[in-house]
Nucleic acid binder design. Sequence first.
RNA 1: GGAGAAUUGGGUGAGUGGCUGAAACCACAUCCCUGCUAAGGAUGCGUAUGGGUAACUGUACCGAGAGUUCGAAUCUCUCAUUCUCCA
Length: 414
Amino acid sequence: MIDLKYLQKNFDEASAKLVKKGVDEATLENLKELFATLKSANATLEEAKAEQNRMSKLFGEYMREKKDVTELKAQVDAKKEEIVGLQAVAREAQEALEHVALAMPNFPDDSVPMGADEEDNIELKKVLEPRKFDFEPKEHWALAEVNGWIEFERGVKLAKSRFAVLRGEAARMERALINFFLDVNREKGFEEVCVPFINNGAMLQGTGQLPKFEDDLFKIDDEDLYLIPTAEVPLTNLYNDEILTQKELPILLTGYTPCFRKEAGSAGRDTRGMIRQHQFDKVEMVAITTPEQSEEIFKMMVENASDILTQLGLPHRVVELCGGDLGFSAATTIDLEVWLPGQDKYREISSISNTRDFQARRAKIRYKDGKKNVLVNTLNGSALAVGRTLVAIMENYQNEDGTIEIPEVLKKYM
RNA sequence: GGAGAAUUGGGUGAGUGGCUGAAACCACAUCCCUGCUAAGGAUGCGUAUGGGUAACUGUACCGAGAGUUCGAAUCUCUCAUUCUCCA
């Protein structure tokens, strides 16, 4: 959630920022008004309550002094009735504000480039030269068939479209990648964590998936529970509603989880192959930091993900997202895109974001800075998406006969 | 699945209707003393939010929600979680 007090005091500045993310000024104006309405409604309500509390205190004194309380009781009763009305007004204002505020995306950093969509993202650098093939490189689904690695039809039979089955060496490589990623992350100082793959609604709200993106989540019937769309949710919310000490920070976490996404709105995109699945494995990094630490840790996380790709010998590029392509919670994001020779394209394989205090405000994650409680910064990033890495290895390490070499660093894991 | 007990601030833990936003202890912070791998003393210290430059002050919160009452951590109901016992 954005800082509503900041919005109220620096409206022009705030709206200039949010324009980058495509939020129009009318929506912001509305939010500001709702905030003001709530404040005045609360002020009146609280004053009435204060008066009732005073009278109730008096009541006690009257009783002790054996005075007549009939008149006082009548007064309190009248006040109580008034409060019921004021309470309804305040609650309504509260709900109206939350409705809008929780759907408002994070402010982008000042450094974020303007732009409408991924076309306007900025390539920062390329790492590793794509290999020159002396034959026509195949797409991973063709290679999957040659090697018997992926069964798309049987995945669909078991669940529905956008589910797949990995077999034999592919299944083992999936597992090898998870272990490799976790080991690298651990060496970089991330603590390995194993978390529930199902989280409740409050946690999903904490990291920003709810209430706005409910359509993209798999929900458990009749329960306030959701399959997680990313380990960012449980790892970040590990500290939901907690006050940390400054000494504990930064907290660096890594974990493997499957991720579940309905992919609402991406009908028709990447329908073929393993790029966009309802269920995929991912190893995630999450950092909880002070505002001062977050910049440096962000860079370290980008470096780390890039380093993993380099170790695997996978050519990739580092891309800074423009305002229009930035996710809901992110203040700034850097994507790593891996080269897929079969598709002749760079495709996203890791997305590293600094959400600043946006998630911390929603999830109430704070630390003690002297006497004050300060919101932490939360960061998250994939290191890496496992299925897409498997695809990238297939396409980059293919031989002319369709067989696939195993990257050197993975050999000891398989 | 059934019966009982519990759920209080960062931690332990008191508190059965107004004097309790909550004792005490621990932890933590600042200071003093001491000069050494320690100990002692003083003060401060819940969270959120509103007003105020500030001192200060209003409101809400003792698992969650609802209720009784002029007034609830304390009484009632529902739910959740934990523990013990029985199937």
